[in-house]
């Protein structure tokens, strides 16, 4: 049993081991009975204290495909609404005996706090603006697949949007750099994080300056309340400066791909329909969510040796 907290704690070796499991997980998913016994008898509890349907369903499907039992606590069903402390909630859920706790919270650091209060393996499903390691793992897998290369060395990734408030950006920067890619973060200065100069990446406030040099254009979801909160220009101006449009699509390198963690705000991050754009791999990101999370749960709970026989 081991936690899956942040990309830094996971490290390169373990990240590669998880990614190496993904094709086997995808193969399981393609079987006529898409389910193996690897985690039979284990329980995975979902502690989702921030709204998230996609990530929660993806973890739930991954746990079931490995034959784990699941239970779900959300902000609206848990007694945290009644003012219970986070520690009390975690200790109560832990008393039910789950082997893993998949934690999503709007505040940075909560999975680390939870890990101190439970015997279960804690899997970070996104904390505040801090980390979203399973998203970064599925993105790395998607990039390798789409660019048909194992090595990301020399690959140039541009991440565009509200970097400052983005856990997807932070986890991706950490993992992509670990895997050898070079990264440029594109945002107006108020949406760049403090200390970005120490991240080992480039920073730019102009998408047009960098778009022609990218192998991967990664558009972040814009959270409207942050854009209108005075940290950046209005949504229309944002779309004109940082959104993908047909003119910018034409400036993409041959073979370049476009990514987005979803859900897309139509007309803000892109005025081009990302579900129809040939360069878009958004659908593959979604499809890779379950096998990558299967690999993560297997790594956290069973190690690579677990049985892949049908249940």
């Amino acid at each position: 049993m081991r936690h899956v907290l942040g990309i830094g704690e996971i490290g390169l070796e373990r990240a590669e081991a998880i990614l190496a499991l993904v094709p086997r997980m995808a193969e399981v998913r393609s079987r006529s009975v898409p389910k193996v016994a690897a985690l039979r008898g284990r329980t995975v509890a979902m502690l989702f204290l921030e709204d998230s349907t996609r990530t929660r369903l993806s973890f739930d499907a991954a746990a079931r495909a490995l034959s784990a039992d699941t239970m779900t606590f959300t902000a609206s069903t848990s007694s945290m609404k009644k003012g219970e402390s986070l520690r009390d909630t975690v200790e109560t859920i832990s008393a039910l005996g789950p082997n893993a706790l998949v934690v999503r919270h709007r505040t940075s650091g909560v999975p680390w706090q939870v890990a101190a209060w439970t015997e279960a393996a804690v899997v970070n499903a996104g904390d505040g603006a801090h980390e979203h390691p399973t998203q970064a793992l599925l993105d790395a897998h998607t990039i390798r697949e789409a660019l048909a290369t194992e090595s990301l060395s020399g690959v140039r990734v541009g991440i565009v949007g509200d970097i400052r408030h983005s856990r997807v950006a932070r986890s991706n920067v950490r993992l992509l750099r670990m895997l050898g890619a070079s990264v440029v973060l594109v945002a107006p200065s108020p949406l760049q994080p403090p200390g970005v100069e120490g991240w080992g990446v480039d920073a730019s406030s102009s998408l047009d300056d960098v778009i022609g040099g990218l192998d991967v254009l990664y558009l972040l979801r814009v959270q409207a309340e942050r854009i209108t909160g005075g940290a950046a220009p209005d949504a229309g101006e944002y779309a004109r400066r940082f959104g993908l449009d047909h003119a910018r699509v034409r400036r993409l390198r041959p073979g370049a791909i476009v990514m987005h963690p979803g859900p897309v705000n139509p007309g803000v991050e892109s005025s081009v329909d990302l579900s129809r754009l040939p360069q878009s791999v958004v659908g593959r990101q979604v499809a890779n969510g379950v096998p990558v999370r299967m690999a993560v749960l297997l790594d956290a709970l069973a190690g690579a040796g677990a049985g892949m026989e049908e249940e």
Partner: peptide, 13 residues
């Protein structure tokens, strides 16, 4: 504190 550390941790500074 708003600093490189808050940027890294994604915490409001």
């Amino acid at each position: 504190d708003e600093c490189a550390c808050s940027g890294e941790l994604g915490l409001p500074g």
